[in-house]
Design a protein around this nucleic acid. Structure first.
Lengths: 158, 158
DNA sequence: CATTGTGTGTCAGGATGCTGACATGAGTCA
DNA sequence: TGACTCATGTCAGCATCCTGACACACAATG
């Protein structure tokens, strides 16, 4: 009974399935966003700003699970295309809050609809009860990993 | 009723939770594998070879959700450290099957045990029934995305 | 036998994201 | 006030992974 534990069958490994499903979702999102001229990272920023305006570069980086440096480049791309706007000078600290432009809101509307269709397709085999149960269990797994142990990503906890 | 759909609250969005959970798992795996001198990608290869020996570079690339080119570099690293071995000449086509060396099997044993502990921690809040239900629903979501729509990743379907 | 198609390994170039480092602005506290 | 801590934005260098392209090996087909 003091057997050494190891990872079992990959076909039913939660870790492997998580990676597979997340990869499939990313690919599907990329497929519908690219025709709209957006990458998944860029869409993530627009979506985050749509839910909570006036976020700083660091805020957005944490929300999208990347570093401030990477987010900076994503924001530059969106800014050059006029989809987001940043204050030229910081109001308070060094943070220069970013907000959606009208063009950005319009792009977000189209992209969000497309992504919603992808999510709907992903969840189509699940009943409403199964859907909510899945959400609850993903939250439980995420919290079990992050409550103590390792950081979630980005560089906020390094 | 012709309302335009959009992505809802991020805190209960399956897509966002999937990304969060997968990121947290990846970070936790990295934290336990790095002390053993392995990256997550390298561990993935060892694990795949442990389950199914004699896989080609392309097979492993598909299994690890990366391109053949990326997998080639991972394999080169493992080969230089003597953890895997590849035939110098192809037996059949151009494929040169890779297999674990004794040192590779030993490294895999330690790494797999560490990863199993991470998975166990992740699943600790779930009952056995919830665990199996989670697996079934992740499979359902993955298949719903990949059965028709977009490819799963890598370059196999581009 | 020649042709076509599919799968594989590999090279070159580039895009993306990360680590490390530094300077700036704000809050805290002796 | 001055020292300290913390969060932010940014620069430089590097690692990783990808796209595009090509050559080879085999199977199927005429």
């Amino acid at each position: 009974m003091s057997q050494v534990e190891k990872v079992g069958d990959l076909a039913v490994s939660v870790g492997y399935l998580l990676k597979q499903t997340a990869t499939a979702l990313h690919a599907s999102m990329d497929a519908v966003l690219r025709p709209q001229g957006l990458t998944v990272s860029q869409y993530s920023v627009l979506e985050l700003l749509g839910h909570e305006p006036e976020q700083s570069n660091a805020d957005l980086a944490r929300g999208a699970f990347v570093t401030r440096q990477s987010m900076n480049e994503v924001l530059r791309g969106l800014q050059d295309r006029g989809l987001v706007a940043r204050a030229d000078v910081a109001e308070h600290g060094r943070a220069r809050p970013t907000r959606l432009t009208p063009a950005g809101s319009e792009a977000l509307a189209g992209a969000s609809a497309a992504v919603a269709r992808v999510e709907k397709r992903m969840l189509s085999p699940l009943s409403t009860a199964e859907h909510t149960a899945l959400v609850a269990r993903l939250i439980a797994c995420r919290d079990a990993l992050t409550d103590d142990g390792a950081p979630t990503g980005g560089d906020a906890a390094r």
